[in-house]
Design a protein around this nucleic acid. Sequence first.
DNA 1: CATCTTGTGTTATGAGATAACATAACTCGC
DNA 2: GCGAGTTATGTTATCTCATAACACAAGATG
Lengths: 162, 162
Amino acid sequence: MDMGSECHHADGAHPGLKGPALSHALGAAETRCAATQERLTAPRRRVLELLLESDAPQKAYDLIAAFGAHGEAAKPPTVYRALEFLERLGFAHRIESLNAYVPCRIDGQSHNAAFLICDCCGAAQEFEPDFTAQLAAAQQAGYEVAGITLEARGRCAACRVS
Amino acid sequence: MDMGSECHHADGAHPGLKGPALSHALGAAETRCAATQERLTAPRRRVLELLLESDAPQKAYDLIAAFGAHGEAAKPPTVYRALEFLERLGFAHRIESLNAYVPCRIDGQSHNAAFLICDCCGAAQEFEPDFTAQLAAAQQAGYEVAGITLEARGRCAACRVS
DNA sequence: CATCTTGTGTTATGAGATAACATAACTCGC
DNA sequence: GCGAGTTATGTTATCTCATAACACAAGATG
């Protein structure tokens, strides 16, 4: 992952999950899938695991390279299909401006997402979007909105200090 | 440009410019460049012209193919550089979720943009964004925001009728 | 247990974007 | 005008990102 060139701050905001926290998050995903007749199969679970473990947005080919337990790469469709599934169920989001993926950090799955992306350290913090104003504008224009994504770039608190 | 598979509505919202209207828009761009010591060189002007003429978001390789006056294609860097320039000056926007480009339809150039994208006919309507709520959320998280883009997908008024 | 549907494995290729380097064109001071 | 510095372009090659297409396997349903 390209961290930008300006600074080398660690991303303390989302350290990535490991051990029990990781297992718990994966278990919760299992539960939610079971409740909706969806199948969290091995490759899907593995990709979600990789996303949850990481502390920064992951490129598809990073996931492909890291997929195998012993260093073997996956084939691209394996990972892209898993990502498609995870996005559909709200377990992951694609950050368009980065061509990268993050696990969803907000509880209830929604088709909307909003990110604060640090140009400096590469961190992407998800926040609960309030799209009231934009939905009103859309309605006025006669649009029926199916989903909104918002991506703000700038500098995070840690990088502003330096 | 992929128009989606569901419908075949024409995009009446942004018919694309031609003749005097096109010349006027290009002239205005010249003026704004002159005012800021920027150079609207031939390739930049040509790419802006192609964007203004079109009635839908244009893929980079569409622009590359259409670049030459007599059907010859441009080399990719020619068009990508022009797009970079046009984005920097606020004459064009990239729509991340489409990998496509549109001319700016809002007067004052800003680093923010918001789009309503029709899944059905492919139209992308720019609207004046009110990011008050999101900027407040960003500030609370300690972020210094340099730019925001918002992309809403759904169905436009014309496509909802059918 | 036949069949339908959904998911996976695999190969190949398509689409989107940029690195690197040489050349040309502005611009500014003289 | 003209040399030096800067900005833009032309060109080749390559890199990154994503999907089409088809065969096979696994779970679901009657």
